[in-house]
Amino acid sequence: MLLEIKNIDTYYGRARALENVSLGIEEKSLVTILGANGSGKSTLLNTISGILKPAKGTMIFEGQPISSLSTDAIVKLGISQCPEGRRLFPEMTVMQNLRLGAYVRRADREGVEKDVERVCEFFPVLRERRDQFAGTMSGGEQQMLAIGRALMCRPKLLLLDEPSLGLAPLVVAKIFEVIQEINQSGTAICLVEQNASMAIKIASKGYVLESGTIVLAGTREELQEDPKVKKAYLGV
């Protein structure tokens, strides 16, 4: 198991946003987390990334407990997140954004340049816009840059928070294509999505979050067959 989460609770101020959540992500797998708005999906990713601290429970990444580590230490271990709202550096160029994504391995200059090339291969538009400020790009381009930046630290586990949100169907298709490519190249992915039907199609395993607790877990087939998932998330 690459990441194993056991019984975590996370609070937002006084409100409990996650309750007794347990889940596991295997190496090189693609796991999706489904749930409505406000069900705690982003909270879960932010807890894994160390932006929020769990009040109880354990998180073990490659045999090492991470729940008390700072975000930068977690990134260094190999967990990277492409967050809600993208969180780019708006007044920096595309290239500067990408290079800062590789901050934890900045000593490896050749490797970083190689990865810039790799990201640009995934998303050729980033090469065209290399000297443009991130804040001036379209939503789709920003999303691509955000995924690219998250890849720059060569994560073992990539957390993606609603990468399809607010984007045109063509762009979404492109992004999902790349997500699969990234996964096939050996990076485990945890994909949070409202677009459940697309997410389930590419995932090997999935969890359903409802008001902060996991109500259902299963493989792709199990989820696709589950009547509740069908009704609430797949709309069939």
């Binding site: 700072s70 550096f89 708006p90 800062l100």
Partner: peptide
């Protein structure tokens, strides 16, 4: 310099900087 870039990055988006692995503190 990279250090200089991290200062600018932290000012522009603190959470983004943390997620890029920058020790914002």
């Amino acid at each position: 310099t990279t250090l200089g870039a991290t200062i600018v990055a932290t000012a522009q988006d603190r959470i983004g900087a943390r997620l890029a692995g920058i020790n914002v503190e």
